[in-house]
Design a protein around this nucleic acid. Structure first.
Lengths: 180, 180
DNA sequence: CCTCAGTAGTCTCAATGTGACTAGCTGAGT
DNA sequence: ACTCAGCTAGTCACATTGAGACTACTGAGG
């Protein structure tokens, strides 16, 4: 209801919202998908209770809407959930936004890439945006490398190497995505 | 009391234990050291309540021992805490053990390196052990890279790059530690 | 004398995660 | 026909973690 620019959701909530945007579904299916055995669970796992709590919060925020209880093909009744227009807008925005910090790449960016892959979307825009987000940070880090002394040097070195790994990863993705 | 081979402690508990092994101290000093402004906080932060809970658990396990309340130089009384022989043994063992998984290097290994740096210890043994721990994993990952398809390829690529970053970091440390 | 800044430690609350639990439905065996 | 194992669907209670406020004691300065 509130006209917030971007709702502040946890990663689990964003992920659940994006999956619902793919097609109307229900809690249990999401929980299976996000479990260790599920397809999404290979990238990022979300425990069952967290999935259901996310559903509650998303519904409370008006980003998804539960329809009446539907009889299942086999098993007890279940309540189908669909995304609202506001939910779709928020999800689309989130999916294109790169992670702010290198440390969030494993969680945020990889989840977004996995979602795009599921939907047959083009990852190149996101990869490019992520690169542009990180390159200045990488440069600044590299400049600090010479000045740093003692254990600070070790820390900056670590950050430099992991940052460089992320950039190489992004470059590889950009190359591998083009030829198709 | 129980003659366990290695107690199972959280990172916060290990860290607190190792700091106490450096010299007898008290909760507040540890909390400051491990806060955002503290020296250790630059590497790994531990919120104040967690520090005190760690102290309780360590004492319960017989790894540290609180002396009677000591009057502070300025401020209210405080209770000094010292490590027991069992605590020292456990801490020494933990400090030499490399992290099992690449994902734990940022937390576990860097903390251990920081502790060694504070104590003027030699990081080379640990760095070497960590390398030996990860190299076979890195090789196995690299082998999976060609076979992987679809989003699995992206995931394996990510793991390969971050693993390579860790190995480069370890190599840089090994080189930089020798000349002194 | 009072208050303020620093020291020392505790408490409560929200979020997250784990594992067990309820409960409906269906098909395989008896 | 009966029941019971196993799948589907969702909930509950509990432990752990972390953030932030709160208590309380002390010495210094106005």
């Amino acid at each position: 209801m509130a006209a917030e620019g971007e709702p502040s959701l946890s990663l689990a909530e964003w992920l659940v919202l994006c999956l619902i945007c793919e097609q109307p579904t229900h809690g249990f299916a999401l929980a299976v998908l996000l479990s260790a055995e599920g397809e999404m669970g290979r990238v990022w796992r979300i425990p069952k209770p967290v999935v259901y709590r996310a559903l509650q919060r998303l519904e409370h925020l008006g980003l998804v809407q539960a329809t009446e209880h539907q009889p299942s093909s086999q098993g007890p009744v279940r309540s189908l959930v669909d995304a609202t227009p506001a939910g779709r807008r928020a999800a689309a925005g989130w999916l294109t936004r790169p992670a702010c910090h290198n440390r969030d790449v494993r969680s945020e960016l990889l989840v977004k890439l996995a979602l795009l892959a599921r939907q047959g979307g083009d990852p190149r825009r996101l990869v490019k945006a992520q690169r542009e987000q990180l390159v200045p940070v990488a440069r600044a880090l590299h400049d600090r490398l010479d000045a740093a002394t003692g254990f600070d040097k070790t820390l900056v070195l670590w950050r430099c190497e992991t940052m460089a790994a992320t950039l190489r990863f992004l470059d590889a993705l950009a190359l591998q995505a083009v030829p198709e």
